[in-house]
Design a protein around this nucleic acid. Structure first.
Lengths: 155, 155
DNA sequence: ATTTGCGCTGGAGTCGACTCCAGCTTTTAG
DNA sequence: CTAAAAGCTGGAGTCGACTCCAGCGCAAAT
């Protein structure tokens, strides 16, 4: 039954390289209760099973998609009991929906940036300087040399 | 040409509601030099032109997609001169590329979460209890399709 | 056997990005 | 005209999420 001396266990350094999380972060996540599956080898060193690593990937997905450490912990703390099963599943489903929304938001943001780029190119093509500031507008008339000194005070 | 008494200017409260940024954040962004277009009405109150609001939207897009306040400031500080035009455009293009990557990442994360959900459902269907922790453990070795150096950041 | 070095722990420190506050002026409603 | 509401400013405080020690123990290499 898979004890921590099995051959497929790897050390913290390898996990760090594998996942992109820093060693400190891995230790900190564990202390914070986000990584329940980590075992210890002789000498007290951490050994990570494939399952532990898959779990880390889930945690990364949750974190990257904006779930707070607190909420991940809460999720992890639900444990694996049947009684919490539905709740866990529901939580994940909500997360999936949230991620879809984020993708939508990101697409919008991408559109905003692209639009800006297009605007820039347009200005360049016409040999103009930048719009009033950066603000764009382009209603019809862009009186040059007005626009005011946007130079905000230096901090 | 468009002084701050024009009718299309709106106050900070309206902008806050419009953009979802808090009033404090709007003021703070301005102090930090992210919002150069904000004018003042009599009494020293902020008036936001449509152009200013469009600019805020750009800043929001940049921030939401992970650009730091420092970097946004740097971008803004480039000003509108022709000499910086290409640099500005290049920066925006890099950002657009970064956003595309993020969307890709998010899709992967979504897949991870969905997989987890499916796994949960499967367990439930079979009336089993736990999964990640302990249970479910890996059959053989590390998952085949996932060796990619996901490596980002730190250390 | 000693050196070199990874790993461990608990705790402190940092950093980015706000958020809150006190005290004051201006605007607006009654 | 007065009072409440909304703004303004500079500065301090908070919070989340790490990141960095100091000091110690194994352990593999020389």
């Amino acid at each position: 039954m898979a004890d921590s001396s099995e051959p497929d266990r790897i050390g913290i350094r390898a996990v760090s390289e594998l996942t992109g999380l820093s060693i400190d972060t891995l230790r900190w996540y564990e202390r914070e209760g986000l990584l329940p599956l980590v075992e210890r080898g002789p000498g007290g060193r951490r050994r990570y099973s494939p399952a532990a690593i898959r779990f880390i990937r889930l945690v990364q997905a949750l974190r990257r998609t904006g779930m707070s450490v607190d909420d991940v912990r809460a999720f992890v703390r639900m444990g694996s009991g049947l009684e919490w099963h539905d709740r866990r599943t529901a939580l994940l489903e909500r997360r999936a929906a949230a991620i879809e929304q984020q993708i939508g938001q990101l697409r919008q943001d991408l559109a905003v940036v692209r639009e800006k780029i297009a605007h820039h190119r347009d200005l360049k093509r016409r040999g103009l300087d930048c719009e009033d500031e950066i603000g764009t507008a382009a209603p019809g008339a862009l009186p040059p040399g007005e626009a005011g000194p946007r130079t905000t005070r230096t901090t």
